[in-house]
């Protein structure tokens, strides 16, 4: 599914990821943990195509498609979804309007006829209900005045509506209370399947106990320094990143 080969990434001439390789097979959930400033969020933005990040070496393929040659929106059309740590607020654009535009663009990119407004509304309601997202939020301006939990649920809603091949969730669990964390975990669990892969970026093992990932990787100073199963995350919570360094 996702094959990252020996990439080096720079921002304004400074190397922030150095010769990193990572493979995520179809249907698997992988996790990247690491201290602040280790390059986790940079990796997620590079995958999504942010133009501030330049890949100076290596390759990234999603289902044998060269991601680095694609624009941001082309990567989305190719099946990549990035769930943001800090989702953007857009005043004056109702969440309905935004979601509808998103679904229309997806249908266009797939060469399909866009669903009718009624069909889209039904689809949005169905998924929103499964995430226990208050429907009244959908009428409000996108993410304006939303709580942290509501914003993250909305990210999950978008993920489930787009049904991407690969989802990258950047600290989706930050700022969530226990109930919201459970909802997000259920969303990821429901999304997992033979055709969907997930890359979770997080600081906390709490979510991992609910999601049950296949692999856990530790990123430090732009390099993957250790990989293992969920027990690695438990050890990190107990002993910290000093444990790895030692």
């Amino acid at each position: 599914m996702l094959a990252i080969q020996q990439i080096t990434v720079q921002v304004e001439g400074k190397t922030i990821i150095d010769q990193l390789s990572l493979n995520i097979p179809k249907g698997q959930v992988h996790v990247i943990m690491g201290p602040n400033g280790s390059g986790k969020s940079s990796l997620s933005k590079l995958l999504a195509g942010h133009d501030a990040y330049t890949c100076t070496a290596g390759s990234i393929q999603l289902d044998q498609q060269d991601l680095l040659s694609l624009s941001v929106e082309q990567r989305t059309a190719a099946g990549l979804f990035l769930g943001f740590q800090y989702p953007m607020a857009i005043e004056g654009v109702s969440t309905y309007l935004f979601l509808r535009e998103m679904l229309k663009r997806q249908a266009e990119n797939q060469g399909k006829k866009p669903p009718s407004p009624t069909e889209m509304m039904q689809q949005i309601h169905q998924v929103a209900d499964s995430l226990q997202l208050d429907r009244s939020l959908l009428k409000r301006s996108m993410n304006v005045g939303f709580s942290g939990g509501e914003k993250k649920r909305l990210e999950m809603l978008q993920m489930l509506l787009l049904s991407p091949k690969l989802t990258v969730l950047d600290e989706i669990d930050s700022g969530l209370d226990i109930d919201a964390l459970n909802v997000v975990a259920k969303g990821i669990a429901a999304f997992k399947g033979p055709d969907h892969s997930v890359l979770l970026i997080t600081h906390y093992p709490r979510l991992l106990e609910l999601v049950k990932p296949d692999r856990v990787h530790v990123l430090k100073d732009g390099q993957l320094i250790k990989s293992g199963d969920i027990s690695l995350a438990r050890t990190l919570e107990k002993d910290g990143y000093q444990f790895i360094a030692s």
Binding site: A48, H50, E73, T76, F81, F84, M88, I90, R105, L162
Partner: peptide
């Protein structure tokens, strides 16, 4: 940042 967010949802820059 908002433009990038929207593009990551499939909209072109102009959209």
């Amino acid at each position: 940042k908002v433009i990038f967010y929207l593009r990551s949802r499939g909209l072109t820059r102009m959209q």
